[in-house]
């Protein structure tokens, strides 16, 4: 990947991260930790690797992107707004009474969201259904889904992985946001689900592990998954709350209350003109 392109993607990721922080700060609190850990992945998908068209959000042949860890919706909304699916000013309505941007991503309310999620473990099943639909219709679109490591404690995740592997859904890419943390602490201390590599391999997946904040590595892994004869799991080693000074690398970053002072300290540059 050209150095300039890497630079552009990093700048775009920075912008989307700032937009997400500002949305949350504007409301006063939100899921910044698990949002920040997947910003680079969202950027790589929407700006480089996925076959999508913001002017045709319901295009039948578009790649599907299912955010199974639906609590990171603000990251997805910011990405969609940055891409032009809807106007950026709408982001400031996040979680307000009567908003079209609820805390967990909603396909009926938000242009560009391919599936509703929030109750953990369910998005990946829908993604498997979409991948099967593509195979049935002999369509070329791919399905990407982002699953949390904590979310992977839900048994349904493994039901979906089992079916995807057994049907050899090579049009499916599962990202695991391996930030190591969940609401109550470290995943390994609470109910250890890692390591992911041998588990996905055992279920018939190709597995690639990358630094989840390295856009070049993420893009390369996605391109590799497009050529795979098996479904692919991309294990993203990430930092919860990445780039958010007040809470980076802490389980408490899952949902953060933003005071005005805290927000000023983040120095986002007011990208949403708050």
């Amino acid at each position: 990947m050209e150095i300039n392109r890497i630079k552009q993607l990093n700048e775009q990721a920075d912008l989307i991260r700032k937009m997400s922080i500002e949305c949350i700060a504007n409301f006063g609190s939100g899921h910044i930790g698990g949002t920040s850990s997947i910003i680079e992945t969202l950027t790589c998908l929407y700006y480089e690797c996925a076959n999508i068209d913001p002017t045709q959000p319901n295009w039948a042949d578009r790649d599907r992107i299912v955010l199974s860890k639906g609590h990171a919706a603000v990251g997805l909304y910011s990405t969609l707004a940055a891409k032009g699916y809807f106007h950026k000013s709408e982001l400031l309505t996040l979680n307000q009474n009567g908003t079209n941007l609820p805390s967990h991503c909603d396909m009926l309310k938000v242009t560009g969201v391919d599936f509703t999620a929030g109750s953990l473990g369910q998005g990946i099943s829908a993604a498997v259904g979409m991948a099967i639909a593509a195979k049935m219709d002999r369509k070329k679109y791919r399905v990407y889904t982002i699953v949390g490591d904590g979310e992977s404690q839900e048994g349904q995740v493994w039901e979906a992985v089992m079916l995807a592997g057994s049907r050899k859904l090579n049009n499916l890419t599962v990202f695991v946001d391996n930030n190591g943390m969940q609401i109550d602490g470290m995943c390994d201390d609470i109910c250890k689900v890692a390591p992911f590599e041998p588990k996905y391999k055992a279920f018939g997946f190709k597995v690639v592990t990358v630094d989840g904040h390295d856009v070049e590595a993420i893009c390369n892994a996605i391109e590799e998954s497009k050529k795979s004869k098996k479904p692919t799991a991309i294990i993203l080693n990430t930092i919860k709350g990445k780039g958010v000074k007040c809470c980076e690398g802490t389980p408490a970053s899952h949902s953060v209350a933003f005071t005005e002072e805290l927000f000023k300290a983040e120095n986002t540059g007011g990208v949403l003109n708050i």
Partner: peptide, 17 residues
């Protein structure tokens, strides 16, 4: 397979297409 929760989710994904 014996995985009803996933079956419902897969069905929902199929319906979305």
């Amino acid at each position: 397979g014996i995985a009803e929760a996933n079956m419902i989710g897969v069905a929902a994904g199929l319906a979305s297409c």
